[in-house]
Design a protein around this nucleic acid. Sequence first.
DNA 1: ACATATATAGAACGGTTGATCTACTGTCAA
DNA 2: TTGACAGTAGATCAACCGTTCTATATATGT
Lengths: 190, 190
Amino acid sequence: MEAVKTPTANGPRERLLEAARELTYTHGVAIGVDAILAKARVARRSLYQHFGGKDGLIAQVLHMTAAADLQRYQAALDSGGDHPRQRLLAMFDAFEAKVSAAGFRGCRYAAADLALPDRNHPAHAETRAYRKGLHRLLEHELERLGRTDAAFAADKLLLLLEGALAAAATRPETYPARAARAMAVQVIDG
Amino acid sequence: MEAVKTPTANGPRERLLEAARELTYTHGVAIGVDAILAKARVARRSLYQHFGGKDGLIAQVLHMTAAADLQRYQAALDSGGDHPRQRLLAMFDAFEAKVSAAGFRGCRYAAADLALPDRNHPAHAETRAYRKGLHRLLEHELERLGRTDAAFAADKLLLLLEGALAAAATRPETYPARAARAMAVQVIDG
DNA sequence: ACATATATAGAACGGTTGATCTACTGTCAA
DNA sequence: TTGACAGTAGATCAACCGTTCTATATATGT
């Protein structure tokens, strides 16, 4: 029977996704197809077979990393224990470690949105879904804190995260994540 | 004598700057040279004569808009009267109006930084100078408030502005500038 | 009137882009 | 063995990129 065929864990499709994930982060989504193909060591045809084109590949990369990033945020929350306040602070701690880590180059999703002026590009739907998911994580914790303005407070925390990502990409020496965490405390305890 | 020659207020140089200012904002700095030339109704040669190339034009556009934007921020501060607290709040009010205005498409400087992976591109020096100038405006008001941590507090306000710009570009329906202003009050009164 | 500088229009260059195509190889099931 | 399928390699395409070029027109200053 073999109902489920092994998804060739290291097949051309996965190699393309991995290569594109790295290159679009370090060089932006404007990176050339040739560079992706070379890094993935995959035939040109496979790209168009699996993803329909460059746009499809980029959208799929964002879809993949969004799921992974949201999982990481969820894990950071869980590392804070049971109390929502501690959970949120643990998340901002993990966030600070992330933006301070070597190789940090800014927010992949903000970069994609800014680099693709075409509003109908499939990538925008992915970045929108990502932010919605992150907002949901934050809002849920704030609701558990008994906040009646959980949605608005989640907007604030999301704004702090986005601002810190933008600032960390251009002025890392000011430790923006630390400033964001300090303001987050005000929002959480507000 | 004519010590100062009229800088041909509507000469090719000015038309190029104006066209590039608009097009790089709506379509990103990846916009083609041809589109800029067509909009400015200027000969191809004039671009290379005046700016040396596309990179020089982009850098000059950022230099020009940075000066204008900083002047606008200064004017917004001044509209708040004498007291630093009122001046800063007036500035955040003006900021909210700006990001809510029709045609707002995000932060020109953040977009330029993200779209130009080459760290040596002259545009980066302009965006850095712009942020430094904005930071100076904020820090000066905070110093007048007697804050000993004026530099750090200015970092926070700058982070709020950058975060609101990023959020307003992708989620305008959440009124990020309003959230930023609310948090700014906390920082200012902190 | 003449020279100079600056503008224009547009052809052309070499390079790169994303995408399509043909041809060949290997695998596996019928 | 045969046929279908997915993969590789690489030529090729049209379009566009930023840049350089020639040639011509239009001012301005001496």
